[in-house]
Design a protein around this nucleic acid. Structure first.
Length: 440
DNA sequence: TCTGGGGTCCTAGGACCC
DNA sequence: TCTGGGGTCCTAGGACCC
């Protein structure tokens, strides 16, 4: 909790649906539902016109159609959403460098890192009014709801209070008065299961929660959540706004219109997902060590199986092979409604099968003028999957040897001189024997 | 015509090492 | 011969968020 109301939370109103209404004027003023439009789809966003019919996020689309047959049902255009989101995030970064996006349509901004003349309630209100106008400008007509307070928790609660197109500033010192009468479910992190656990010990409101000892909360909810809620019940929240967060996993999943039983089909679907994951890994210039397969069976029971490799990979065949092996461990004879393939334990560097690496290196050759990129790309690490002899080349640089493990190879590049191996090191003693090839 | 897709964080148990 | 903890890694599942 800060002494001044310097944490701002923005939430774009009915974001996906609003983008559709912006781009298609015939949809304006009408119910619009964006989400899965197949037999097993759910609603991602409903326009306020559709919400009037009782349609809301996470509702099965079939139910939404029943409640609001005249709505436009759209599958969504994520490219347009990303573009619009990017414009808003840029705008926010113009206010303060400390911007933490939570999703395409939500972000925290730490105003204490902004060039702010007046951090009083009146001062930040004026800033927020201006921000809201600019949001509408840069998005081509969308509105956002803004909450400002002394912490992330309070800012987030505040932005919920006056949707859509709202602006609420909670003056420091008023947090407890605001929270006490509210249901515990307004607290982010308190979902149906936690609410039920709390209900069983007689807790319905934040005031009720505040009356429970920390020991009791830890007993009922576990260490992390119990401690966390003990603090939030008192509006104690020091969490910083974090602008740069590294992804921890990349995954793809699909729910099928019909359950699949045929092994060959399932294998082929896993294969396709492994390819998609790989594409995204490569785009992110990343690789991962742990492959996870997710399976939802006909009865909606969900199972995951994972395997951790000795080194990271961004190879579709490897990921697919591991995922299919994991699939074989599960009894899928009753039918599979969802398959997913994910990769975690990400490394910010690229594994390579050295025999197929030459093209990749070419693709990733740094721009000569980009010295910073060069410094990073000049050093690449390779995972050698148990090959007897490994060698690679970049320009005229070579290394070879035998063993298993991770080896670091530093190349000279076009900008630093002729392509030559400068040095190499490995974590497996066998690989210490790596050496440049004899003169040809 | 039940229940998406992309994530994050937490828990608990077992293996393994010191 | 029996008995320890602590730390870390891995795995599976669950809760939650947008």
């Amino acid at each position: 909790m800060r002494a001044e109301p310097t944490i701002l939370h923005v939430d774009l109103d009915a974001f996906f649906a609003s983008v559709e209404q912006r781009d298609k004027p015939s949809l304006r003023g009408k119910p619009v539902v964006v989400g899965g439009i197949g037999g097993r789809g759910v609603v991602a966003t409903a326009s306020y016109e559709a919400r009037a019919f009782g349609v809301h996020s996470a509702m099965p689309t079939a139910e939404a159609r029943r409640r609001c047959p005249n709505a436009a049902f759209l599958a969504g255009r994520f490219h347009a959403y990303r573009e619009t989101s990017r414009a808003v995030m840029e705008l926010l970064r113009g206010i303060s460098p400390l911007v933490e996006p939570l999703s395409l349509d939500e972000a925290f901004v730490d105003l204490s890192a902004a060039d702010l003349a007046d951090a009083s309630v009146a001062g930040v209100s004026a800033l927020a009014h201006e921000l809201k106008e600019k949001v509408t400008e840069v998005t081509g007509g969308l509105t956002g709801s803004v909450g400002i307070g002394s912490s992330k928790f309070i800012a987030k609660i505040a932005s919920e209070l006056d949707k859509p197109n709202g602006l609420v500033v909670i003056a420091p010192g008023m947090e407890q008065d605001l929270l006490r009468p509210m249901q515990v479910t307004v607290i982010p992190g308190v979902g149906p299961a936690t609410a039920e656990n709390l209900r069983r010990i007689g807790v319905h409101t934040v005031a009720d929660l505040e009356a429970v000892s920390e020991d009791e909360l830890v007993r009922v909810l576990g260490k992390a959540q119990g401690h966390g809620l003990y603090l939030l019940a008192r509006a104690e929240d020091d969490r910083p706004v974090v602008s740069e967060r590294e992804a921890k996993s990349i995954s793809v999943e699909d729910t099928y219109d019909v359950d699949h039983v045929d092994r060959r089909i399932l294998d082929a679907l896993v294969d396709r997902q492994a390819t998609k994951v790989t594409e995204r890994l490569r785009k992110a210039r990343s690789s991962g060590r742990t492959v996870t397969l997710k399976v939802r069976l006909h009865d909606f029971s969900t199972h995951t199986r994972s395997a951790t490799l000795p080194g990271p990979t961004d190879d579709a065949r490897t990921i697919s092979r591991v995922a299919r092996t994991l699939l074989a461990e599960l009894d899928t004879s009753g039918g599979v409604r969802l398959l997913g393939v994910g990769v975690s334990a990400l490394a910010d560097w690229i594994q390579d099968d050295l025999f197929s690496d030459a093209e990749d290196i070419e693709e990733e050759a740094p721009e000569p003028e980009d010295v910073v990129a060069l410094a990073r790309l000049g050093e690449r690490r390779y995972w050698l999957p148990g090959l007897d002899v490994v060698h690679t080349e970049h320009g005229q640089g070579w290394v070879w040897g035998s063993g298993r493990g991770v080896v670091t190879v530093r190349f000279e590049t076009a900008a630093t001189g002729p392509g030559r191996v400068l040095s190499f090191a490995a974590d497996d003693p066998a690989l210490q024997q790596l050496r440049p090839p004899p003169e040809a």
